[in-house]
């Protein structure tokens, strides 16, 4: 049901700009107003949610870790998995953010004959996720050529590396093929793995299908239904320099691509896609395990009224002495 609904939503999102620009001549709406609105929603929503997260107190360290913590000098510390310093934590976070180290430890549980339970390593999800995220990042950065004049040299270099195999014309980018394959795998995994299907919701299927739609329209635009990309760059440069212009020789397919991207940006702050900033705030990954070296005081600690034994003895010393009770301080 969630899959059908998501598919239906994507179909509507494709048909809207198709009718809007193909029949109703709403190029300005789909080329300027909606992209601007989406970007504003993205930035404001993102800032709002992150600041909301930032207000959450961090009372103590969570030393959950996968390795030996710093201890006596003759016990070897696992510095990457259980860092006790700032830079150690930076290294652990870098591995987490860039290479999804936690996901690398993914296991799958199987009930085998016996019955016997077995836990085996399962790297496919890690591989699919890594392939998707890196392709998406490279494609995102490559699109900078539509928003920069002159195009910086590192965008050229990235394009050159991405088209390393020089297959086809225009040269096929490796990331274009990889992102489609990875998204297809991630989607089919949700459909065919009964355990994952059971916990999948519409907000899991929808972003996947949306990204597939964006990748598919982008690939169509580049390789199959080519359009006047100089006009598209004029649109992009107009948007980025806040002097929007809408060239008239841009096809509806481009507006579908742009609209789906706008939807992705607008949807971002309201969805699980917020794991992009969220990964940096993973509590078990971004805190150095230094609880034994530094005292972390809970900021909402109630000021407890204490009455220590010393104070107690001061208060009742005379009575205690009269009763013959032992005193720590007798004067």
């Amino acid at each position: 049901m969630s899959v059908v609904l998501s598919l239906f939503a994507i179909a509507v999102l494709v048909i809207l700009p198709l009718i809007g620009t193909g029949l109703l001549q709403l190029e300005y709406l789909f080329g300027v107003i909606i992209p601007y609105a989406a970007i504003i929603l993205f930035l404001v929503g993102m800032i709002y949610r992150i600041l909301k997260w930032a207000n959450v107190p961090v009372p103590f360290r969570i030393p959950t870790s996968c390795g030996q913590q710093q201890s006596l000098s003759w016990i070897k510390q696992n510095e990457l998995d259980n860092p006790s310093t700032f830079w150690g934590t930076v290294k652990r976070m870098a591995l987490e953010v860039l290479f999804f180290r936690s996901l690398f430890r993914n296991t799958k549980v199987e009930l085998r004959e016996g019955p016997r339970i077995s836990y085996t390593s399962d790297k496919w999800l890690w591989l699919g996720a890594l392939a998707f995220h890196w392709s998406f990042l490279i494609i995102f950065v490559r699109h900078f050529k539509f928003f920069a004049e002159p195009v910086p040299i590192w965008v050229d270099t990235l394009q050159l590396l991405d088209g390393f195999f020089q297959i086809g014309l225009p040269i096929i980018y490796v990331t274009d093929a990889v992102i489609l394959a990875a998204l297809t795998y991630l989607f089919l995994r949700r459909i065919f793995n009964p355990l994952v299907r059971y916990i999948s919701l519409i907000n899991d299927y929808f972003p996947l299908l949306l990204l597939m739609g964006i990748a598919a329209t982008g690939i169509l635009l580049r390789y199959f239904l080519k359009t006047d990309i100089v006009a598209i760059k004029e649109l992009g440069m107009g948007l980025i320099s806040l002097h929007p212009v809408v060239p008239d020789n841009i096809g509806a397919l481009f507006y579908i691509h742009l609209f789906l991207v706008s939807v992705l940006f607008a949807y971002f702050p309201f969805s699980k896609l917020m794991h992009m900033p969220g990964v940096f705030l993973s509590p078990t990954r971004n805190m150095a395990n230094n609880s034994r070296m530094r005292r972390h005081i809970n900021p909402w600690n109630y000021p407890v009224k204490t009455h220590t034994y010393e104070e107690y003895e001061d208060e009742f010393r005379d009575l205690m002495r009269a009763a013959g009770l032992p005193l720590e301080k007798d004067k």
């Binding site: 930035l43 993102m46 800032i47 992150i50 600041l51 997260w53 930032a54 207000n55 959450v56 107190p57 961090v58 009372p59 900078f144 928003f147 920069a148 004049e149 910086p152 440069m237 980025i240 320099s241 900033p277 940096f280 705030l281 972390h296 005081i297 900021p299």
Partner: peptide, 26 residues
């Protein structure tokens, strides 16, 4: 303890990166 200052610094870095095309063309 709160990590607010660190998070705000991270947010600022993100904003600079995401708006980079604007500064670049300016």
């Amino acid at each position: 303890m709160q990590d607010k200052s660190k998070i705000v610094i991270g947010l600022l870095i993100f904003l600079v990166i995401i708006t980079f095309p604007i500064w670049y063309n300016l």
